[in-house]
Design a protein around this nucleic acid. Sequence first.
DNA 1: CATGAATGAGCCTTCATTCAT
DNA 2: AATGAATGAAGGCTCATTCAT
Lengths: 193, 193, 193, 193
Amino acid sequence: MPISPLRKDAARNWDRIVAVARSLVDQGIPLQLNDVARRAGLGVGTVYRHFATTEALLETVATPCLEALVAQGEEALADTDPRRALETFLARTVEAQVTDASLAPVAAAPSDALPHTTELKTSLWATGSALLDRAREAGVVRPDLVSADLVPLMCGIAYAVDVHSGDPADRIDTAHRYLATLLGGLRAVPPQR
Amino acid sequence: MPISPLRKDAARNWDRIVAVARSLVDQGIPLQLNDVARRAGLGVGTVYRHFATTEALLETVATPCLEALVAQGEEALADTDPRRALETFLARTVEAQVTDASLAPVAAAPSDALPHTTELKTSLWATGSALLDRAREAGVVRPDLVSADLVPLMCGIAYAVDVHSGDPADRIDTAHRYLATLLGGLRAVPPQR
Amino acid sequence: MPISPLRKDAARNWDRIVAVARSLVDQGIPLQLNDVARRAGLGVGTVYRHFATTEALLETVATPCLEALVAQGEEALADTDPRRALETFLARTVEAQVTDASLAPVAAAPSDALPHTTELKTSLWATGSALLDRAREAGVVRPDLVSADLVPLMCGIAYAVDVHSGDPADRIDTAHRYLATLLGGLRAVPPQR
Amino acid sequence: MPISPLRKDAARNWDRIVAVARSLVDQGIPLQLNDVARRAGLGVGTVYRHFATTEALLETVATPCLEALVAQGEEALADTDPRRALETFLARTVEAQVTDASLAPVAAAPSDALPHTTELKTSLWATGSALLDRAREAGVVRPDLVSADLVPLMCGIAYAVDVHSGDPADRIDTAHRYLATLLGGLRAVPPQR
DNA sequence: CATGAATGAGCCTTCATTCAT
DNA sequence: AATGAATGAAGGCTCATTCAT
């Protein structure tokens, strides 16, 4: 949502822009501010006023979903079973990524256009980190995986689902299958044999 | 290498182009046929004559590496330990991907520019498939992973390594760590608890 | 200062705008009304209400300096030595131009945005003209230079100083040197030889 | 002229571009590569291929004139009268500047787009410098003017002529008058009084 | 009076591809 | 076969000015 309260008409334009961007993202069409402006029936300048860069717009599109994930992270932290807490949280994470095309690029980006995005990502990272630590201490995950690996691995799974590219309806199932496999390996396996 | 025998000068040009492209790929510079032509000291037309599209050139650059992987697949098939065979083969696969920037896009592409690329990829797929089947029959991998998942998962790991983006020298280690985790999960784990 | 009495708040805005513009001019940043508005913490409309064009604002910024020059012109007219009167006046003129970046464009402009600017420039022109005439009658300047040449020559010197572009601290010295040279030539030199 | 020999058609385009640019310069219309392309009936890319920047095109337009000046510099150096040599050279210089609008910006620019331009400017500077030194040694110019002042002063005169802005036909006369004045001052004048 | 959102023409630049030489 | 000039659509971004609130 816009940082400072906007005039009603400006707010309507802001909404339109984000809506158009959302629909483009959903159709897999790359965001271009000129294009967004045209489709929204607005001048380019208007779009640039609201979103200085493509990234800023994309992050704005992704924000609601990131916020939902943050909320789900809170819930996971409340779960007393360390393994279930971690696994549920990661499941929500990959589900979101394979469901909403705006997330993957935002998650993988090394830097953010909007401070708010950074806050959300930091919060998510902290949650994941806490959940992983707790699980590790409980001895339910292998000890050589660290919190800095969580984001790459989740992005990797989402990417794998993209590469798999079967029926769009199967994306979530595939994601679950891949995550389950990874989680199987994440469990504290003594290097067998 | 070029499919049909070329005149000697044409062959030299072909080599130059591929060499330039290889060095660009290694430096992380996106391939552009104009650019390649200039750096190779050739006309654009010459480059287009040899490689109709950027993809064709990229696949050509990737070919030796794919061929090496095919050879390693043969070796793996000769290994009598089903699990070790599979795991070794997958390890070679991800190592190649994180080492050679030309592979990831070729591996992930749903279609190929060159028939030869398709042959190599098909061969690799068949090898992976055979190794996976054998391992599954031996009961050493979980039964819900099918051969169509191998490529996506390997690409996913390579992507995860990219997202991790630490010291380039650590890429192989990171790749091994991620693969080990996945393989841990790949092992025939009874849904615990 | 604003022509007609303004409401107190309007006057405060006017002051802010001019102050911001002055600081921009001093930093060599080109005036843009949008930019000025933002830096002044005002709406663009407010700035446009006060100053219809960039030129109007620039002339307003230049005004105090022009007024000071007019005053110095009065003093020069009171000097009984015709040559010294002229030379001192011209010295003040170029010093002002190389010191205050708002002057050069205003001085060189063939037309003005503000009537008051025209008045000041006319007054300065008249002063220069009178001083030149007096000097010419006294036989201390060459006869082929006319009052219409004074402004161009002073602007030319200021421009030459810009082109010279050495240490900013040397600008005045350079200007003096160039003016001295010109004045040397201005003196009633019989085409020697 | 183009550095390496061009194909006939390319040469024709090069000529067209330069001709269009020349006519724009003569009409006082600012050069814009897109605009030049349109007027020349060529694609933008063609213009960009020949001239990477506006400055490069402008310098190309100015080149013949600069070359002529260089030639006149050679002649001046052959003149045995130190004062006449210097004064004639400077006269040619300002005449060129007020006659050809492409010169002033090129002369005043602190850096050049084309190496050839730099060569020409360097050569001119050296010539002016030599002529000035010779004149100074002969005691016919004041000692405090150095070669680094020549370019600024010539540019200043040209600028003064622009500011004067009378009948275009009078520009050369005005330039001569201003130069004569300056030269009068340049002569070795003991600080009189 | 003040605001500042909206406009959109206008400029710049890149690059994949074609085709005359 | 080789060349490389030409093309021009496409995309990015800025900024002076207007006008609804």
